[in-house]
Design a protein around this nucleic acid. Sequence first.
RNA 1: GCGCAGAUGGCGGAAUCGGUAGACGCGCUGGAUUUAGGUUCCAGUGCCGCAAGGCGUGGGGGUUCGAGUCCCCCUCUGCGCACCA
Length: 898
Amino acid sequence: MMNPNPGHPDAMHDEYDPQAIETAAQRYWDEHESFKAVEDSTREKFYCLSMFPYPSGRLHMGHVRNYTIGDVIARYQRMRGKNVLQPMGWDAFGLPAENAAIQHGIPPSQWTRSNIAYMKAQLQRLGFGYDWDRELATCDPDYYRWEQWLFTRLIDKGLAYRAKAVVNWDPVDQTVLANEQVIDGKGWRSGAPVERREIEQWSVRITDYAQELLDAIETLEGWPEQVRTMQRNWIGRSEGVYMEFGLAGSDAVLGIYTTRPDTLMGVTYMAVAADHPLAQEAARTDPTLAAFLDECRLGGASEAALETMEKKGHPLGRDALHPITGKRVPIYAANFVLMGYGTGAVMSVPAHDERDFHFACKYGLPIRPVVVPASWQGREIYIKTMTGTSVGHARLTGEYPVAGVTGEPGCDPLQWETWDERFEQPGILVDSGPFTGLTSAAAFDAIAAWLEERGRGHKRVNFRLRDWGVSRQRYWGCPIPVVRTADGGLRGETDLPVRLPEDVVVDGSGSPLKRMPAFSELANGETRETDTFDTFFESSWYYARYCCPDNDRAMLDERANYWLPVDQYVGGIEHAVLHLLYARFFHKLMRDEGLVSCDEPFTRLLTQGMVVAETWYREDAGGRKTWYNPADVEVTRDDKGKLIAAVLRADGQPVTFGGVEKMSKSKNNGVDPQVLIDRYGADTVRLYTMFTSPPDQSLEWSDEGVEGAARFLRRLWALAITERGERPAAAVAPGDAERAARREIHATLRKALYDYERHQFNTVVSGCMTIVNTLYRLEDSPAGRSVRREGLGLILRLLGPIAPHVAHHLWRELGFGDDILAAPWPMVDEEALVQDSIEYVVQVNGKVRAKVEVPADAERGAIERAALANDNVQRFVADGTVRKIVLVPNKLVNIVVG
RNA sequence: GCGCAGAUGGCGGAAUCGGUAGACGCGCUGGAUUUAGGUUCCAGUGCCGCAAGGCGUGGGGGUUCGAGUCCCCCUCUGCGCACCA
């Protein structure tokens, strides 16, 4: 029999079957190449990029969230008419592949490529609108050859150089460890105490770009303020003074940098790194010092480890000479000063620096206050060590000619026995010879000038940012394209790519490259560098390569200048500094090589929050915790919904709540997205992740919440199937109920459109839910059905970017068109919003006492009279006199009664 | 240790500007449908109180007719710290 309704698609099934409609929708997009991006100079482009994944094996919820956010933005911009590029690829080099190889004997390349295949299928199942033709993997020589090429250019330009860098050294495994592999100061495999070592490595001069990287942050208006602040602080521009202390009994000098030259007269000792030549020299004749220097090497190299470890020192037995007074100050070797950063030496002012203060107390060094707040003028200041011995004393009296400061001679002395943060603040110099009485700011200049005149120092801008050490002593990475010539010189490789051999055995005892003469030994006695690049190197430019991944003659071509900069970048907040700063830097390197024309790679940035879930555990007698997956825990609640008990389903015995934490293997609180996709379909998973939290906040997992998302899609489906088949006649006069419904729908739509623009997708979804609820309340009259159909048309487009499969299917099924991707973006009907009367909230002294209905065109006096006429308002006004009436148009009246 | 965020019902969260705190969803309670479980539908649900009303956005202070929102102090939690990606 023929379809009785040939103008319409086939009748729908009554049941929502996500697996079937999602497969069909994805096939449609595939056949129509819906997401293929083609350069077109006549159209406004939109490049939407999500941070590419490390191919760890399976997608986790964090990936699903990241890529859903990106896809929603890409599909939204596409529906707004932009020419959208949304690519995807693989950050394929890295440590986990080597670990997997050690554990399972699989070569890293094989492990990585099979993970990519599996995860790609998962991404496709989620319906993300990627242009897969542009897919790239960083372990592919066609990709990494270009960063090798750029690196040889950096060598030529002097932007890449060899320098010493501090690493974690495992003395048992004889290998360099990543910070992650150092646990409580010990190697993760050997358990041996880790040592800090300095080795020669390749470095890139990011500090040459420090000022530009800092200045350009001001132009990144589409970035979260939080990230901009973190980058500013990371770059850490400071203005200070470089100066040279003399060395007693020598012509040599000890150079240091300080941001507080105003405290120079308070220097009571110097601290140098254990690896400083002065310390090394002194240790040759001093066994206790030598032993101390050995001890200084213990511990991890991370900044957190260095800053939190116990600060220790040992005198070198020789003195430095103060650049102004010429007085002797002792030099200490200290474990918290590193040779790699700055000059490897610092001046120490215990009266005005907290770390120096504690160090001085510990070793009985003098504390000499030289700067005090102006308000302390006229007082005596004593600072004692924690052991109670008074070692410092300064006085500020009214005799110093400081503008705006009046003396209070005879006041009580101020005494401190512990550190006070006021010591650190700038103020007035005391007991500082020729600089006494100056403000800190004036003293800064005066002392710098004094030193400069005598050739002992000068002002200097300094950055906290350090050059980027890019060498890694690992196998699974991009080979550094450098050759050491027979005479010991270094040159960039010209025959590129330098291919990484993939047929290798990784056994954990260092990089296999170092044992492969076929790789490292070249003709004419030349040898190849066996270190590989930091994987941040690959991830610093992939966004540009997506524009022209097929170019085998150049790193980038003119297509990059069509698509770049990336209009919207989406990824985790954990990348706020490192990845995003390196990528900005790399972009400028490519710009200066003439490869791109813009100055910054990412116009707008969205940093998404973590995915977290409840944790549950049991503790055994020895205090060891066993963690149970939330899916295996049964929870009981009281009649207020409060949690009262939780047991493990398997044995019915209680488990303890361990808080809400980031999904992880160690806490066993991960949820496998694949299980959810199989059970509910991609649209439910996407809708849930968008609805539960705003994109930039953490998302707390809840099985019931997923149920709720699925329920909404079933409700939408059930509503839509009532409207399949014949279309109602065009114009049906609406009644009051329909007019009210339209007003609500369009008011909600207006809010949802605004929320789309500011990327607050959770409230877009609640808006859709509100509209569905409104549509359900409409009567089954022709007028009601007309509004329902209008509402469905709006909802499907609002939901299109978020739950694209069901939107695609219903759009066609209801006869709105062939392809919702081509539909115009919905618009608010302003006429639907017009109201005859307005409800005002009436407050008395700021407390809500009534609501009054007032004609929309009522004047101020009429509104106030209506408010005062209300019985309940009169009850609260009666006691006093009306002092003032505050009126907020269309909203609120506040009657102030005194 | 340093830098950056955050804190709102039983839970996730909402509240463009300083203007009705708690939208939407979950959970929970009662009811309907169902042989039952599930599903679905209807009603209720910040706390205290019979009510009138009072209290309420981590804690303490302040500005204002009015503060979740602005200012000061404090507490706790999360993220980053240069070799995890």
